[in-house]
Design a protein around this nucleic acid. Structure first.
Length: 274
DNA sequence: AGCCAGGGTCTGC
DNA sequence: GCAGACCATGGC
């Protein structure tokens, strides 16, 4: 049970299980958060957000009740039972090491358009470079919130641009994909509210109509942006790992939260070497 | 220099 | 249906 205190300048949460900001914000699901002196800074819904966590506590700075309830809590997925998922995965002899490695991982519910663009950029790319491209995209075409912090560009803004306009971002061949995605979101061809209400397979089909979006990118959007825990993005790393772990797929009882398991595995294989 | 990076499209069998 | 070339860019 969470104990939440709404202060004048911050909101404090006590009683969090399986919650570690260092693991959540640096496991390859998001690309804009930075950590300094134990405080994580990012931008959500056009606002600068600062978070500090320790143990079962979380402090959200510069935050009132409304912003916490409407934006922060859903973003950090505070009300999903990660303890139950973690315990379940611990009991699996092939996956328990991955679960033990980072027990505080959670799946963020990021803004869908930002998630879509971020994972379009991710294709055939590496994480440091993804971060650089996303950062330049925001600085170049997002609204400045306060000194040095930018909102993610809106679909309308990006849909008005050309490949040449995007050249400074150095997104390479992905620039044309970003523009098509922005156009389809801006004109309603892709409607996130509608997609989030659909079952996984149908939702995926609605996203892959975008030029440059295949199953993997679609599943990342569904998992990290639309809250679909059963989405299971398979990249080269997960593909290799699954070949030795579960060639026929995850055990059936894990299907409802396969995406959480995927994140445990991904973070483990990427960070446990050495 | 060559390979790889949280892939997808297009072509040719 | 499936393999292979190709796509920009940058770090190692």
């Amino acid at each position: 049970m969470l104990n939440i205190t709404y202060g004048k300048e911050s909101v404090n949460v006590i009683g969090l299980n399986n919650f570690c900001l260092d693991e959540i914000l640096d496991c390859g699901q998001c690309f804009r958060w930075t950590s300094c002196d134990g405080v994580w800074t990012g931008v959500i819904s056009g606002r600068v957000v600062r978070l500090k966590g320790s143990g079962d506590k979380l402090c959200v700075y510069d935050c009132d009740k409304e912003f916490f309830d409407n934006v922060i809590a859903p973003y950090l997925d505070l009300y999903y039972d990660y303890e139950a998922v973690h315990k379940s995965v611990l009991q699996d002899s092939l996956l328990c090491n991955a679960a033990k490695f980072a027990p505080g991982i959670r799946i963020l519910r990021q803004q869908p358009f930002e998630t879509l663009c971020s994972f379009i950029i991710s294709q055939n790319n590496n994480i440091p470079r993804i971060k650089g491209i996303v950062s330049r995209l925001c600085e170049g075409f997002g609204e400045e919130i306060s000194d040095g912090y930018y909102a993610f560009p809106t679909p309308d803004k990006l849909s008005s641009l050309s490949v040449d306009d995007l050249a400074p971002c150095r997104a390479g061949f992905r620039a044309k994909y970003l523009i098509d995605a922005a156009k389809k979101v801006a004109d309603g061809t892709v409607n996130f509210d509608e997609i989030s209400a659909l079952p996984l397979d149908e939702a995926r089909e609605k996203l892959t109509v975008i030029y440059g979006v295949g199953n993997k990118v679609a599943d990342c959007v569904l998992l990290y942006g639309l809250g679909k825990k059963d989405a299971f993005p398979v990249d080269v790393w997960i593909g290799r790992a699954m070949q030795t772990l579960y060639p026929e797929g995850l055990p059936a009882h894990m299907t409802p939260y396969a995406g959480v398991v995927q994140q445990y595995i991904f973070h483990h294989i990427r960070n446990s070497e050495k």
